[in-house]
Design a protein around this nucleic acid. Structure first.
Lengths: 234, 234
DNA sequence: GCAAAAGTGTTATCGCTACACCCATGT
DNA sequence: ACATGGGTGTAGCGATAACACTTTTGC
């Protein structure tokens, strides 16, 4: 008897609708933002919601999440990680749906900020998040909490910044995520001590007259750092 | 129709089998153990596996996990937490099954050690885990990793000990989880500093002539500690 | 020349680590 | 009396946190 015969045992079991919902974080240079979508259809039309979709027969959870993100933001290759699975029986008033929540960190530019509006979507600051359908509000709160814990231990903040960035920009990002001010001397010292940033010769002069040097993320150093069992802590 | 449009209607969406699998940890006083079950039925008869079950229509994921644990160990009110959801398309060769893995920490006594054998189950030391079916081995490895991280930051180790315990017992538990020796002075100092243990007047004399004082877990202090945004680190 | 942000060093404190001896008791 | 595990204190080190001034340059 081979493995394929196991199918027999599964007959008679209940099948359930399974969905993926994505909490999409972005950073506009000033604060951390969350991408939400307005439902275009009844029921709950006009209410704010995370982006999500049902799982198709032939697609893994991770791939479904990736595809949702690609379709809703045009971005691929972004940081994407499972958050938690929500499975209360009555969580969806229509019919039972089990939802696997993912959160993602994306690089956001001015274009994105406006273009999403065409899809009835909007980037919200964390202090202006509207009421969300179902248990999406709960998902968002957990994602924020998880992000804060994670960003202190692993250098994932980079995913929210562009190809190059200045240390003051990065500090603003961290302050925005952690919701507290950081000392610039200590922040720079710490961040540079990991030795995963490379200084360039160019400066960003948009934020000051003196200008701040651009740095780029050094993937080789970073991988080495991870391989050695990293110890990142802000 | 692309993914973004699918939310509109639940009819016509694919329903999928959903299961819960439990990684059950126990501590026998010497080492951390894992509870595994031998499949009694074809196919895969005789192979080791985690305990699991399909989700029923009217039961939440958490409740399903609790029930599985109750049925397989007789224990309720144990530490139980979601680990990760496994959703690769081909992970189960029989038919597609999405599985939510939970891990639990249980109090284990000599009785349990033997009685589980009746159900074709066995407690394995972490260094003697046999090959497991499907992706269960992966689940176990992740659970061990998560437990190690978690036990350093949150005092969840208590769940593996009985009502009362001595500090040497507790140290052995932590050493067993973290797989490294700890200094007794530093360990006691640290553990007592959290102020969530209450010393009793009784001693455990089973392990030494001098005897070691029993301590009990102080839930009030612990809750207070948690409420203040705890900061537990071993 | 001045406003505005970038960039830099030192000191004090705290927590962790490492380490060795005496205590209580059953045999 | 001795063997066995229980229980304790301290000093050194490294990491974090706190803190203020100089530099650059566009206006």
């Amino acid at each position: 008897m081979n493995l394929l015969d196991t199918a027999r045992v599964y007959t008679g079991q209940t099948k359930i609708l399974v969905a993926v919902d994505c909490i999409v974080f972005g950073f506009d240079g000033q604060q951390l933002k969350l991408l939400l979508f307005k439902r275009k259809v009844e029921p709950l039309k006009g209410q704010w919601s995370l982006i999500g979709a049902f799982i198709k027969e032939d697609m893994s959870l991770d791939d479904s999440a990736k595809q949702i993100l690609l379709e809703s933001t045009g971005l691929s290759n972004v940081f994407l990680e499972e958050l938690k699975t929500y499975g209360a029986v009555e969580r969806d008033p229509g019919e039972r749906v089990i939802s696997i929540a993912y959160y993602s960190l994306t690089r956001l530019n001015e274009l994105d900020l406006d273009s999403v509006e065409e899809y009835d979507a909007h980037w919200f600051g964390l202090d202006e998040i509207p009421e969300l359908i179902l248990d999406h509000g709960e998902m968002v709160q957990l994602a924020i909490k998880r992000l804060r814990e994670k960003v202190r231990r692993q250098p994932i903040g980079f995913n929210l910044l562009g190809e190059r960035f200045t240390l003051p920009q990065m500090q603003i990002l961290y302050e925005s995520i952690l919701q507290k001010e950081l000392d610039p001397r200590n922040f720079r010292k710490k961040m540079l001590s990991f030795d995963i940033l490379t200084k360039t010769r160019e400066k960003d002069k948009s934020a000051s007259k003196k200008g701040a040097f651009y740095y780029v993320f050094n993937k080789e150093k970073f991988d080495e750092f991870v391989a050695n069992g990293y110890n990142f802590e802000i």
